[in-house]
């Protein structure tokens, strides 16, 4: 399914989420194959403390290299990155991260919009944006930015989300390519990965 809409090989996949999204990731991450052919960048609304409990929790659910981003970390395919608490996560043209502790956006830092907009600027049509459960409209502007630069948009099916508001907002305001439940999301991510490996091995 996914391959038909993918215009370019996927370099990066962004996942944004708020209330109810950690539970989704705890199911999705263990189901992903390794190595991943893309960088997976996760931006979650979280408490603004510097403790690494969330990073530890998620890292235990995957075989892939996992890191909470430090300033200027290079973005490598196959690695899963988590936006640190209390910073906006931005992406530079040379495909490295930079951090920003400016004002909250949509009451949030990290803000999903900020990372998605910045990534759209750098990755264009080789980007996929995924929005999960949440009670905040953060992420919709970011999805619009990805749409504008030719990337692919995926939203968790609001009925399967603990709080459907966040994906609902994106669906209402963008041309979301796929609306998926958790199993659908897992299948989608696998297909994106396999599609590329097949393409690569064909040469």
């Amino acid at each position: 399914m996914a391959e038909t809409k993918l215009k370019n090989p996927t370099e990066a996949i962004l996942i944004g989420g708020s209330t109810g999204s950690i539970e989704v990731l705890l199911r999705v991450l263990p189901a992903l194959p390794t190595p991943l052919s893309f960088a997976l960048i996760i931006v979650l609304h979280r408490k603004n403390t510097a403790d690494s409990t969330l990073a530890t929790l998620l890292s235990l659910k995957t075989e892939s290299p996992f890191r909470e981003v430090d300033d200027k970390d290079p973005i490598r395919p196959g690695t899963i990155y988590l936006a640190p608490a209390d910073y906006h996560l931005l992406i530079e043209q040379d495909k490295s991260f930079s951090l920003d502790d400016s004002e909250k956006v949509n009451y949030s830092r990290p803000s999903i919009d900020v990372t998605f907009e910045s990534a759209a600027d750098v990755y264009g049509s080789s980007l996929i944006g995924i929005l999960l459960s949440g009670a905040n409209a953060d992420g919709t502007k970011g999805m619009q930015a990805i749409q504008k630069t030719g990337g692919l948009l995926v939203a968790q099916h609001p009925d399967t989300a603990l709080v459907g508001f966040m994906p609902q907002q994106a669906i209402a305001n963008t041309t979301t390519d796929y609306v998926l439940d958790i199993d659908g999301l897992i299948a989608f991510l696998k297909s994106v990965n396999t599609a590329q490996q097949t393409a690569a091995s064909a040469f």
């Binding site: 931005l90 992406i91 530079e92 920003d100 400016s102 900020v114 910045s118 600027d121 750098v122």
Partner: peptide
Amino acid sequence: YSRASLKRR
């Protein structure tokens, strides 16, 4: 300055 942040500002 970091370009991504500067551009956003």
